[in-house]
């Protein structure tokens, strides 16, 4: 049963996709017809790649939000602050202790995992079964608290820091464009992380159990799955993903106690992807990052900052279930 409004919105949606595809490809077409010179095209490609790189970071934060949402049906507004903590942890291992990049990163992500578990046990576990609103408020409070905590930690504070990486200050030539290795590393590592997560959810027992919990908590419980312990693990996993995101974001945006506000860009990404879909979160993050790059390329200054939100509003009105989401509407 489809009403004319549904058909109308579906048509608008197809139009929007066409428009977006045109927006992405237009400079290439212009270059092919000779209306745009190689330098401008190179600049465009650089914008596109840096947009995709920041989009990957959005994607990972969105991924963490979606992981928690799927399992517990609450939105974790502290996800950005978990990223911030993760970035500070890698700053500690790599920047302060001076460990090699790979080892330091590994340790920092492991620490972020434990930190996520700690957060869940301290503030979320007592609220299992309470209304979603309560938990959302607690995560907002947790975010505030973490920001202050990092500001008060000796050695971290409210200053800005950088993490030395092996990629910094190196570039790759890609056609007419010069790509920073930082951006390339972010994109490649995100792809690797997605692959690892896919294997984890599809092949391991715990991964499958997590899927079961996010499908139906009660049924999972009856099947003998320790639902509450899995919540803890999911928080840990989500914090570890945030830790990776923090590690990758650090070279392109300084490490400081306010970097958690990236969550406000990751939420539109999560909605874009349907909010309950892991691949959707990745695609959503990429779309938001690229949309920002396009807005920066085509439109006057200022539009770049609102691109994510404008996109979110459009998607919420035209296709509220997101790109990958299934329609959850119940008819009475």
């Amino acid at each position: 049963m489809t009403s004319w409004t549904d058909r109308l919105f579906a048509a608008i949606w197809r139009g929007l996709i066409l428009f977006a595809a045109l927006g992405v490809l237009a400079p290439f077409l212009l270059y092919a017809t000779g209306a745009m010179d190689a330098m401008r095209l190179g600049f465009y490609i650089q914008q596109l790649v840096s947009g995709a790189a920041i989009g990957c970071v959005y994607a990972m934060v969105a991924l963490g939000i979606v992981l928690i949402y799927k399992a517990t049906e609450t939105i974790n507004f502290a996800q950005g602050d978990l990223l911030m903590v993760g970035a500070f942890l890698s700053f500690t291992t790599i920047g302060i202790f001076g460990l090699p990049y790979a080892l330091g990163a590994l340790l920092a992500v492991a620490a972020a995992f434990l930190f996520g578990i700690l957060c869940e046990r301290a503030v979320i576990r007592p609220l299992v079964g309470e209304p979603a609103f309560s938990i959302v408020m607690v995560t907002i409070g947790l975010g505030f608290f973490l920001r202050a905590l990092v500001g008060l930690t000796p050695g971290w504070g409210t200053d800005t820091f950088t993490i030395p990486t092996p990629f910094t200050d190196h570039t790759v030539q890609l056609g007419p464009a010069i790509i920073s290795q930082n951006h390339a590393a972010i994109i490649l590592l995100t792809m690797a992380l997605c692959g690892a997560l896919y294997l984890f959810f599809a092949k391991t027992k715990i991964g499958v159990a997590m899927q079961a919990v996010s499908e139906n908590q009660l049924a999972a419980h009856y099947m003998g799955i320790p639902v509450k312990n899995l919540f803890t693990l999911i928080w840990g996993l989500s914090a570890a993903v945030a830790g990776v995101a923090g590690l990758l974001l650090a070279p392109i945006a300084f490490v400081h106690s306010q970097m958690g506000f990236i969550v406000f860009k990751a939420l539109p990404a999560a909605v874009l992807g349907g909010f309950a879909s892991l691949p959707g979160a990745i695609v959503g993050g990429l779309i938001v990052g690229i949309a920002e790059a396009l807005a920066g390329f085509y439109l006057p200054q200022g539009f770049k900052d609102v691109a994510a939100y404008a996109l979110l509003l459009i998607v919420l009105i035209v296709k509220p279930e997101g790109i990958f989401g299934e329609s959850g509407m119940k008819k009475v």
């Binding site: 607690v138 907002i140 947790l142 505030f144 202050a148 500001g151 008060l152 409210t158």
Partner: peptide, 19 residues
């Protein structure tokens, strides 16, 4: 002298109230 302490206390109060 830390500027963030107010928002930290705000956050803590939200958590404690909800809990």
């Amino acid at each position: 002298s830390q500027s963030g302490i107010e928002s930290g206390i705000f956050g803590l109060i939200i958590i404690l109230f909800v809990l």
